[in-house]
Design a binder for these strands. Structure first.
Lengths: 251, 251
DNA sequence: CTTGACCTTGCCCCAAGGGCAATGTCGCAC
DNA sequence: GTGCGACATTGCCCTTGGGGCAAGGTCAAG
């Protein structure tokens, strides 16, 4: 018959841990000897080892107690657990990979080429306000989606080489302070819808890649002015009327 | 400028998490707008992403704060962290392997061959008390050290085929109720020391393999009777006097 | 007889947030 | 302008899996 300390040392846990398992109903309380000490049979070692195996695998103690009293669930639970462990190992490896990237090239706010792009915008007629907003958006994109950010950026720089598209961007910039009811917003929205369909066809970029980040970016733009918010709304209506269904959010 | 909810959604955390990071000094509190709402610059997304990378890797928030204010430690911390992740991945894989073994062959208290061995002991003259104790010891060994348990067990069954050794084991069994001062204990200890040296030479088995489990087992035996405790003490003295140094514990 | 190692219960403490309450503020629709 | 739903604010308590301490009782050894 073992004392609580012997039991704990056999299994490599603290006596406190054993007492917690008693309190949570994971391990039945053993008999007490004449002085009130807990006295464990050797089988308790086996039970405790099993509990620790599950706990080490990350099973919450409450769940372990359930499994102890419902052994018929054990098989499927172990399968589930095996799959969980596999995904957790994969997640850890992903984290390790990203961490190494952080260690290798210390993360800057923006790649140099993006900074150069932004530096060129005043010469094209964009306001400082617009450039500051665009800068913020790129910072967010590169921080949260470094994998697709470069693709987006290439698309954007290429669009600005087209004079018509550039005019549309400049018009958006200028629209910042318009009244939301201004009819020129409707006209601008129509032109944007047409250009968008022409440029991207049925599959606007980024939206397929990651709809939620596009949503978030748009909400940031919208927050900057009521006119731009209205413009966004008009563009959405226009795209839907043109046969597009914006697959945002759950879509 | 982002609200706390936008910032949190960009990075995939809850607003509560962001506020906790403020409270713990991980992320500086941003400016407030006219109604008291926090307003974040885009750079906050980058900072929050960095914090999450470290937190996902298991770095405590207090440590992250230290690193934020002492960037010169960052490099070595990242190296340390990389090593930690590697070992944690390995531990998870070990757990997974053991878990699969549990799933495959549901753990019994004892392998069948051990049960057969125990069933044969009464015919050799061992008392039920001794057999019960031995059974408990095997349960513990198989539960805590399944890798070396079979080796130990083979050694034990083989020893019992030797009539002289069997007599020694039987004598130990009988010694249970002797007075600790009984001189026959000294004699028995001498014979055990001699037989042990003869059988195992300079390297008693199991002790080299795992000294601590042997210690724990012996303490369990000792707890069963003062005479056996005394016998253990005499044997240790005898082995040391015979040129052996028990490398227990830290050894 | 003391000393050190063990056991008992009970209590408070930690990280990293989750959840609720009570209140204030937005933007939109009627 | 009124109401509604979504969002923000602070403050407080709750959770998990124990760690640590206090104040006492027990045990074997010198």
């Amino acid at each position: 018959m073992l004392t609580i300390g012997q039991l704990a040392r056999y299994v490599g846990v603290s006596t406190k841990t054993v007492r917690v398992y008693h309190a949570k109903g994971l391990l039945p309380e053993p008999e007490r000897d004449s002085s009130g000490y807990r006295r464990y049979p050797a089988q308790a070692v086996v039970e405790l080892v099993k509990i620790r195996m599950l706990a080490d695998a990350g099973v919450p103690l409450a769940r372990i107690r359930e499994l102890a009293s419902a052994p018929e669930q054990l098989d499927s639970a172990l399968q589930q657990l095996d799959a969980d462990l596999t995904t957790r190992i994969k997640l850890l490896r992903d984290t390790q990979r990203r961490l190494r990237k952080l260690a290798a090239g210390d993360i800057r706010y923006l790649p140099e080429e993006v900074e150069r792009h932004l530096d060129g915008l005043p010469g094209l007629g964009f306001t400082q306000r617009w450039i500051a907003m665009e800068r913020d958006l790129w910072i967010i994109v590169y921080a949260t989606h470094p994998d697709i950010a470069d693709t987006w950026f290439q698309d954007q720089t290429q669009a600005l080489t087209n004079p018509e598209l550039r005019q549309l961007y400049l018009a958006c910039d200028q629209a910042h302070d318009l009244d939301p009811a201004d009819p020129s917003l409707t006209e601008l929205a129509d032109r944007i819808v047409a250009a968008s369909i022409h440029r991207y066809g049925a599959e606007p970029p980024g939206q397929a890649a990651d709809a939620t980040i596009a949503e978030l970016l748009q909400s940031t733009v919208n927050a900057s002015s009521p006119a731009l918010r209205q413009l966004d709304s008009l563009i959405r209506n226009g795209l839907e009327a043109g046969g597009f269904t914006l697959r945002t959010g759950a879509g």
